[in-house]
Nucleic acid binder design. Structure first.
Lengths: 336, 336
DNA sequence: CTTGACTCCCAAAACGTTTTGGAGAATCTT
DNA sequence: AAGATTCTCCAAAACGTTTTGGGAGTCAAG
């Protein structure tokens, strides 16, 4: 309600002293400090955020750009991650703004607007592409940022990512060890690093086992994309007996394709993300998940450290992938 | 990069003139205006947001508080709505910040921090409760806000809501018309307006038909909550033959309970929200959805109008509920 | 030649904070 | 007792905009 000037006047003190008292500086006496704090509490004084930001030359804001292609925004629990991140940022006085990309503008335009207008202290980038123009731009501007997912940028940058390559390679090898020989992959759009990485993992395993890598179909990272991709694979002359899907949503779409084509329950399937929904599908969906808890907090921590100036090399987290065994990966490997 | 002073200096003009030229005022000649604009473009000038906010006494920010109880944050497509809202707000120069509630703090604390620190021009409230302290607080402060969901507040306030009462009443009557007599309701937490509203709709229909209203179980608005609530109803001596669920997520949980208890496919079921996932469950989930498109844009528009000072009464949207018939509501009404 | 209107521009004052660089008084040192 | 040090406090200068209230010119009308 009140501002510093009014508060100072009512206390018979200078603005300076009141400001420093509230910030806990040692050069104001304990008695005065207490008196000021009480008065501030009483009138419910909160420093005006805009004024502070201007003076401190800090926006106290972090922006996350959201791709606007439907379904490309991220898995359903993505908001939970953002929420966790925002919560931890708030503890450091930063707020998280979401910056979707309006039609007709590129993600780059958004970055530019936020960065050049000094609207943010850092940025969080999600759904990174292998070649991501946002990364290059932010690097050139020297603005702190963290990405969710690696890129193929030559300069190192802070990121958190799951080791999709290792995870999908291991999942494929598991199917092979269980006797499967025709193991298909339902891939996400390959311009995304995560989708490419996971695809590479599957391909590597197949090649190690001396198996052909033609049972691969790409689709949008949504139920419908998985459904269509699965139908494509099921039309092949020799059907796969197991399916490794880039995401749970795609796997759930594939599950429906399986039900339609062979009555379901003949083909093994595994997804990735560990959606809550997966425990409730029929059959319950086996899946993979990135290890580590409270991803949002990790992002917040990395962002804060990036703002503090830590070098990019120390701000890279590659998390192992673990399996979540439910039921859908246990179908026999017999010829279909 | 540059600021107004530097830009003015390089052009041999005053700060005032440059500022007004960029804002398109008529009291600067067309020639100068053009010259200024070109120079601004060339150096990539963007006004410093903090300075403008301080001077204009506007935060250029809208906050949305996110409940932190897991699963209480909203349905999976909730982020899409926020994204749409943010996009339309951005067109008016406003950014959307997400404000989760840290442990140990109440949603009220968050509102207070944002409002009293003048960090926002308006707020967006989601998952409103029947008695919502946030609403009362914002009303007392006179800060513009819009809620997603009505409340029982005595003073009118802007909202967008679906007519859950009518929708659930109609859904229940449909089951009755199809011969069902034991129609259960899987309810969300009754402190939320939407959950209570939907429950009331079901109850009203049952009473109109002269049926008992004891087949009702409450759970968390998630798959697990629906699963547990369904198990509870299925344990009753005379099982329901149809289930009206407060949300799709609960319905999907209930679907699993049905599979476990009676092998599935014996009991009709309908949810609400029209999750993409619903088309891929087994059986495909019949559901309901709020009519109207681009909910996010509607929120943005209401927020802008609230900021512009329109009275609350003119900023209330109650949308009809429409049915999305897939398959899960078509089970026979025979005695189980 | 004055008057008024019009065009184009600008100096200075905000907005509310944080921070710099002391000032005055009290206390300690020598 | 003088000088050094420590405690408290404060005036003023930022931070970068927007906006207020004119001030020169120019031009047409009287």
């Amino acid at each position: 309600m009140a501002n510093l000037k009014q508060l100072a006047q009512s206390l018979g003190l200078s603005i300076t002293t009141v400001s420093r008292a509230l910030d806990g500086y040692a050069d104001v006496s304990a008695a005065t400090r207490e008196r000021v704090r009480e008065a501030a509490d009483k009138v419910g004084y909160r420093p005006n955020a805009s004024a502070r930001r201007l003076r401190r030359q800090r926006a106290e804001l972090v922006a996350v750009t959201l791709p606007s292609d439907p379904g490309h925004i991220g898995p359903p629990h993505f908001l939970d991650m953002l929420s966790g991140c925002a919560e931890h940022l708030a503890a450091a006085g930063l707020n998280l703004v979401i910056a979707p990309v309006p039609r007709g503008e590129s993600e780059l335009d958004i970055c530019r607007r936020f960065v050049d207008g000094r609207r943010v202290d850092a940025m969080l980038l999600v759904r990174t592409k292998r070649k991501d123009e946002r990364v290059e731009f932010l690097q050139s501007r020297g603005i702190p940022f963290v990405t969710n997912g690696r890129t193929e940028s030559l300069l190192p940058h802070p990121y958190i990512d799951g080791d999709g390559f290792a995870g999908f390679r291991a999942a494929t090898l598991r199917f092979h060890a269980a006797g499967h020989r025709r193991i298909g992959h339902i891939a996400g759009p390959q311009e995304y690093y995560f989708a490419h990485d996971r695809c590479r993992g599957w391909r590597a395993a197949m090649e190690e086992c001396g198996l052909a890598t033609d049972l691969c179909a790409e689709g949008a990272p949504l139920e419908q994309g998985g459904y269509l991709a699965a139908l494509e694979l099921l039309r092949q002359p020799s059907r796969p007996t197991a399916l490794v899907c880039a995401t749970d949503e795609m796997a759930i779409g594939a599950l429906r394709a399986l039900r339609e084509v062979d009555g379901g329950n003949q083909i093994s399937i595994v997804g990735h993300d560990d959606l809550a929904m997966g425990a409730f599908t029929s059959p319950p969906l086996s899946t993979m998940r990135m290890t580590g808890e409270n991803l949002g907090a990790s992002f917040a921590s990395l962002l804060l450290r990036a703002i503090a100036g830590e070098p990019a090399e120390e701000l890279q987290e590659l998390h192992a992938i673990e399996f979540v065994d439910r039921d859908s990966h246990r179908r026999p490997a017999k010829a279909a």
